[in-house]
Amino acid sequence: MNKLNLSVAIGNYDRCRPLIDGAVQIDGVNPIFMTLSPEEIFFRAFRGEEFDICELSLSSSTVKTAAGTLPYVGVPVFLSRAFRHTAIYVRTDRIRKPEDLRGCRIGLPEYQLTANVWVRSFLEDDHGVKPSDVTWVRGGISHAGRPEKIRLDLPPNVKLEDAPEGETISSLLAKGEIDAYVAPRAPDVAPGTPNVGWLYPDPVAAAQDYFRRTCIFPIMHILGVRRELAEQHPWLPGAVYKAFNESKSVALAHLGETSATKITLPFAEERLKEARELMGEDFWSYGVDGNRHVLDKFFDHHHRQGLSSRLVTPEDLFHPGTFESFKL
């Protein structure tokens, strides 16, 4: 069988590097890797369907799955996972605790970003601050005029407005014209900007407490295979899932080999031990099995926040060939 020559657009993550370097192969595929930023991948994937296999926003994929317009089939490879307690910055001169956000103006780059869905979920579940309790101000982090990637039809009680022309949400936060800021990236403000800081003084402790209570390690990004390719080659999503799993296993084995630290960070061995003590041996698991409660929580909030027109399930999003694999 001739191998398929396919483009693969993903971030340059340690868990993908064995694939990128060729140490791990995708059965039946000659991959052409492009390591790009998530913002560029998502823009090109959802606007132009430019890649055969690519990293996808969980939120954008859910919006389009609910509408029946997703041009990719999902593979439950969770290339990005993150506790987003570090994603909320506030004016520390007026916001002391999460409950203070009621009635405030909060900047964000796009309403539907996956990180923002998760932030709104724990603000509501843990602190009683609903999406309708604040005014959302949409704008770029570093460049003015950032639009939503996909069209949204939000509930009437959600107040969403655009930042003033020429302003970013970073500049508005620095000037005190918004009360808070939620985004996957830190605000683009000068170091030492007064009265700008994290909502949670110790976001790691807040995230650890969240995990102990919920057993949820939030999923940000999934993998997608272009739908027409998956229809032509039903084996392909399963082969992709298998290869990315193997690549992650190789990366974790390297990370745990302590004779010489593999990442440029002190105390890496100790942090790995702490993560496994809190979250288990396979703390960054792929697959629906073991992650269904995480996905169901996300889909429920996504729908209740008015982003998906119907409640999506894992069976709606992911290819059936990725739900189970052989065992010896």
Rank of each mutant, 00 (worst) to 15 (best):
P155C: 09
G238W: 03
P203E: 02
P237W: 04
W235N: 03
P184H: 11
T264W: 14
L272D: 11
A207S: 15
I263H: 07
L278D: 00
Y210R: 12
A174N: 06
D179K: 07
P184M: 11
V204Q: 08
A186D: 08
H254C: 12
A243Q: 02
A253D: 15
A230M: 08
A180E: 04
P155D: 12
W198G: 12
A186G: 05
K273A: 13
G176P: 07
W284T: 01
G287D: 09
E165C: 11
P237A: 05
E165A: 15
I169M: 06
L252S: 06
Y210S: 11
H293M: 02
A180S: 06
E277G: 01
P194E: 07
V240D: 07
R212H: 02
T261K: 01
K262T: 14
K159I: 05
V196N: 06
V288T: 06
Y286C: 01
I263Q: 12
R271V: 08
W284V: 05
G290I: 03
T193R: 01
P187G: 05
A268W: 14
E177D: 09
G256N: 13
K242V: 00
D162W: 06
E148D: 15
G197C: 11
V225R: 04
A183Q: 04
A205T: 04
T168A: 08
R271F: 10
S249E: 15
G176I: 06
R226P: 03
S285T: 01
E167A: 14
R213T: 04
R227K: 15
L265G: 10
R227L: 06
R212Y: 00
S247A: 14
H293P: 02
L236A: 06
S171P: 01
E161W: 02
A239G: 08
E231K: 13
A205I: 00
F267H: 09
N291W: 01
V204D: 03
V182H: 11
Y200K: 02
D188E: 13
P194T: 08
L229R: 03
N195P: 00
L173W: 09
P156M: 07
E177Y: 04
G280N: 01
R185M: 12
V158P: 09
S259L: 11
L160Q: 13
P191H: 12
E281A: 10
R227M: 02
M220H: 13
V250I: 14
W235F: 07
P266V: 10
R213M: 04
K273N: 11
E269A: 15
R212Q: 02
R151S: 13
G197L: 11
T214A: 05
R151L: 13
T214V: 03
G238F: 04
P187N: 03
P234R: 06
Y241D: 15
G238K: 11
V250N: 11
D209R: 14
A206D: 04
